[in-house]
C-alpha cells in the first residue's frame, strides 16, 4: 500500500537518504530499523510531508485503489486526505491542554466541517452539538483502549512518560488513519509498558490500520513486526521477515560496525 521508490533527501552536502526503495503492505506492521544516523527519521519526515524529498516518489494506495503522491502533497493534506498519521521521537503533545482536548483537536477537520463556518457552532446551533458528542465518544473509545479514561481531564503534560507515549498514539488514531507511522514508540518505556505498547499496536493492526515504525528496541521489533526494512547510511541493506533479517550478514555487520566495505561505500 505504501511504495517508496528511489527516495533521495539531501541536506546541503549530506545525503541523509540515498536512493531508498521499499514497500509496506496493507495490514502489516513494517519496522524500519538501522543504526543511529541511518536516515530513518528523515524517511518518516518525507512520508508525512515535513520534508520535501530531493528526488524519488512515495505513493500511498488506499484499499479502494485511490493513489496519493505523498512526496508532493502539502503536510496537512497527507493527514486529512491520504490518512497518514504519525507520532514523534520526542513526544509532541499539547501539554497545556487536557487529555480529552488533545484527542478532540485531532478530530479537528471532521468537527470543523460540522460547525457551519464557525458561526452556527458559536451560537450553539446546527449539527455541531451532535458532532462534538460523537467526537467525545470516539475520544472515550481510545481513552479506554489506552487506559487513560480516569485522567481525561488532566493536562497532557502532567502524565507520566509512558502514558504520554500512549496518548500520542491515541491522538494519531483519532484522525482515522490507514497508515500510522510511529517514531520510536518504545523509547524510554519499562518492560511492562513496552508489553502494553505491543498489545496496543497489534490491536491497532487487527483493526485494519497498517503500521510503519522506527524502533531501536529489537525485542519490540522482532516480536510484533511482519516485515522489517534495515537502513544504513541512507540506503536499504536488508528487507524481509524478522527471521530473514536476523540471519542477514549485512545487518549484523552494520550493527556491529564491522566491515570496511561500509566506509568504502560511503
Amino acid at each position: 500500500m505504501l511504495a517508496v521508490s528511489n527516495l533521495v533527501m539531501r541536506f546541503g552536502g549530506l545525503r541523509a537518504v540515498d536512493g531508498l526503495s521499499f514497500e509496506a503492505r496493507a495490514g502489516d506492521i513494517t519496522a524500519v530499523i538501522g543504526p543511529n544516523g541511518a536516515g530513518k527519521t528523515t524517511v518518516f519526515n518525507c512520508i508525512t510531508g515535513f520534508y520535501r524529498p530531493t528526488a524519488g516518489a512515495i505513493t500511498l494506495t488506499h484499499r479502494n485503489g485511490e493513489k496519493f503522491p505523498l512526496h508532493r502533497m502539502p503536510g496537512h493534506r497527507i493527514a486529512t486526505e491520504a490518512k497518514v498519521a504519525r507520532t514523534f521521537q520526542n513526544i509532541r503533545l499539547f501539554a497545556g491542554m487536557t487529555v480529552l482536548e488533545n484527542l478532540l483537536v485531532a478530530q479537528h477537520n471532521k468537527l470543523m466541517a460540522a460547525t457551519g463556518l464557525g458561526v452556527l457552532a458559536m451560537l450553539g446551533l446546527g449539527r455541531y452539538r451532535s458532532a462534538e458528542a460523537a467526537g467525545i465518544r470516539k475520544a472515550r473509545h481510545w481513552l479506554d483502549a489506552i487506559g487513560l479514561t480516569e485522567r481525561a481531564d488532566d493536562p497532557a503534560g502532567a502524565l507520566p512518560y509512558g502514558a504520554q507515549r500512549r496518548l500520542e498514539i491515541a491522538r494519531a488514531m483519532c484522525i482515522d488513519p490507514v497508515l500510522l507511522c510511529l517514531d520510536e514508540p518504545a523509547a524510554g518505556l519499562n518492560p511492562r509498558e513496552s508489553e502494553e505498547l505491543n498489545r496496543l499496536l497489534l490491536r491497532i493492526r487487527d483493526q485494519g490500520c497498517s503500521l510503519l515504525l522506527i524502533e531501536h528496541d529489537m525485542g519490540v521489533v522482532m516480536r510484533i513486526s511482519d516485515h522489517i526494512v534495515v537502513l544504513d547510511h541512507g540506503r536499504k541493506i536488508s528487507d524481509g521477515t524478522p527471521a530473514e533479517v536476523r540471519a542477514d550478514a549485512a545487518v549484523i555487520a552494520a550493527y556491529l560496525g564491522e566491515g570496511e566495505d561500509d566506509e568504502v561505500e560511503a
Binding site: F50, G75, R77, I78, L93, G96, M97, V105, M122
Partner: peptide, 21 residues
Amino acid sequence: IPLGRAWEALREDEIACRSLG
C-alpha cells in the same frame, strides 16, 4: 469550538498540529 481549540493547539505545538491535518 474546534477553531479555537486549534488555535490553542497551535500555540502548544505547531508541528503536532500539522501532523494531525
